[in-house]
Design a protein around this nucleic acid. Structure first.
Lengths: 368, 368
DNA sequence: GGTTAGCACTTGAACAGTTTGAGTGCTAAA
DNA sequence: TTTAGCACTCAAACTGTTCAAGTGCTAACC
């Protein structure tokens, strides 16, 4: 019927957009009268009513009850996000705010993600979250062992994703540790386990490692165990949430039941993680929007999730996003997330290829 | 009037205790009729009413409205906690549950505290929290520097509280790093900064440090900065909360307003921290109870805070506790926290003085 | 004196009935 | 095809009533 879409006439689109905009802003069902008064649509309320009835029949609108205005359905929001949304022009102030907030604490990945989610939450006034994805392929790029005393050594692991982890290991008997043994251990680890990830450490390799430690092969096994632990810990993806209290301001979540659901989802975040982490390989640098029951997880009733991956050198370093009611201000949220994500990426690149600085600079602290 | 307390007759105490017990269990105002029917008090409802009227005049009870039953006032709860409470006998099952849950992940302090707060939350069904106190006196017991490549070194700091922190430092120009410089740096740091805490690192010391580095004095300044950062980071006390959703089950918090207050308090935990961290020096190993407005922070209306320090060798390692409605089951909460705290302490002692083990054991990982 | 029984009183909760107003669908006219 | 008008629907807000819980008080009782 129309040039662009087979489904909706231009006027229907206008009406749908006006309804969704109004509902996003006010949170209440919007009626035909309001639309004519707001001057957005140039025809009478009766005409609008007819169009609205059709839009409802097509599934884009819903009516809470017979004499209420219309409310967008999930399908309506989806269409809005996909086709109707206008690009939100961030103010210079907002952009500079992002810059300012982000550039302070860019020390370490977890820090970055957490800060970014807080910024997102602040600017959009929804709840922000950050996810560090499980890194299945992480390996140890470099080992070091610090001799502390006869009974203690510290294992330092520099991982392939630039994180540094340490483990304190204690020897509780028999032969004391020495500086020599410690050095020998580090060298052996570097030789045998270099760039291997957890499931590539096989028995033959472990045996070779023990042999190269000669008489002190006794230290190998607990060290291997510690390394395993570190690598496995990284496979747990972690979720940080900020600004939960912001959700309370939306009447959608003011009922104790809804709130309890949501808090539960945040506390036991398996579901949330599975949604957000799913497109593991997809490194497309665009935000993703999930509205209500579009996820397989039914907890997200009446709410929506917008998230964007943080990508560096084609690797997905994590995901940040916001969680809010399905009537969230998608235009603003999308723009904000894109801006933040782009900002982080450029800072990360910067950090790596910065050319002529004068001295040692603080690159990243460990995950403390 | 009575032997033990100048204030309350034995019967008044019985009645007060019965009312509080009933209110804790049911959450509703309790009336005289209920008390006689529950057989706890051996006199008629009229007598109880008289006593209740007096208890109310004394400030131990309150009446939501004229025809409602009585509800304990904060003063009532306080008296209950101080004088009326019976020791809660934990079941063998509960104790073994604590043991089981705690002994799995005793790797690192933050871990311990977090796990402990989760256990507390689970067992009591209130919200649990854990605080690592700001450690003003933390110093570096041992430095090490790991040479990574010409532009990168990793600084390993073994702190006086057994935590291990690392910082990755990058040299972005001029003279490349070498293994020798790195070793020299570690030695110099150990010599000059050993056991000094942040405010003891004075200018003369820094100058001496630079001198001992000879021509490579250029690396000193960023390293010092990094050390400062680590020591300062530790001064931020951190709060971890678990089981927020449990709060929702108590009608006290079902109103959006109340909930919003509480979530706000949890998200911006300065107030909470100041309450819990206040008795910094007090190493008494007993739980502390704060009821409602007893704290200077008015957020805690209708709620109570019970917490206990975790102490090892007379040092306060942190605090765990629970947050719930003021009608919380104090007897159970107190017993649970004492048990957990004692349990942790004994495990910590164990870890340190364990005598004859065979091999390297995993002592503590860093805060990753 | 302390204790108890009985009664009048208060008050919020629950319920039913009414009004109000927003918003619709439909029909008929333009 | 659009518009004006009207009848209809329905939730929200308000009212009045009843109900039950629980009290305070008084008078009788031991």
């Amino acid at each position: 019927m129309d040039s662009v879409s087979q489904e909706l006439s231009e006027r229907k689109k206008q009406i749908l957009k006006a309804i969704i905009d109004a509902h996003i802003a006010g949170g209440e069902p919007v009626g035909s009268k309001y639309l004519v008064e707001s001057k957005q649509i140039a025809c009478s309320s009766a005409t609008i009513r007819n169009e609205m009835a059709e839009l409802e029949a097509m599934g884009y609108l819903e009516q809470p009850h017979a004499s209420a205005g219309r409310v967008p359905s999930e399908r309506g929001y989806r269409f809005y996000v996909d086709s109707l949304i206008e690009h939100y022009a961030m103010t210079a102030r907002e952009i500079s705010q992002i810059n300012e907030l982000l550039q302070q604490k860019m020390a370490e990945l977890d820090q970055i993600l957490l800060t970014a989610s807080k910024v997102a939450s602040n600017l959009t006034n929804y709840t922000g979250f950050a996810v560090r994805p499980k890194a299945q392929k992480v390996s140890v790029r470099r080992f070091d062992a610090v001799y502390l005393d006869e009974r203690t050594l510290i294992l330092v692991l520099v991982l392939s994703n630039d994180q540094v982890k340490t483990k304190t290991l204690r020897a509780d008997g028999e032969a004391p540790l020495t500086q020599t043994v410690t050095d020998q251990l580090a060298a052996a680890l570097n030789e045998h386990l270099h760039d291997l990830c957890a499931n590539e450490i096989t028995l033959p390799i472990m045996i070779a490692l023990e042999e190269s430690m000669g008489s002190r092969h006794d230290v190998v096994s607990p060290v291997i165990k510690a390394i395993y632990e570190v690598l496995n810990e990284l496979e747990d993806s972690s979720l940080k949430v900020s600004g939960v209290d912001r959700l309370l301001q939306y009447p959608e979540f003011s009922s104790p039941d809804k709130m309890k659901q949501l808090l539960g989802a945040i506390e036991k975040p398996d579901d949330l993680l599975s949604i957000v982490s799913a497109p593991d390989e997809i490194t497309e640098h665009r935000p993703n929007v999930i509205i209500g029951s579009e996820s397989t997880v039914q907890v997200m009733d009446h709410s929506a999730l917008v998230y964007i991956p943080i990508i560096k050198d084609g690797k997905n370093l994590g995901t940040i996003g916001v969680l809010g009611p399905s009537r969230m201000d998608y235009a603003k949220v999308l723009a904000t997330l894109e801006e933040i994500s782009g900002n982080i990426s450029s800072i990360l690149e910067d950090n790596d290829h910065r050319p002529g600085e004068k001295r040692l600079t603080d690159g990243s602290n460990n995950g403390g």
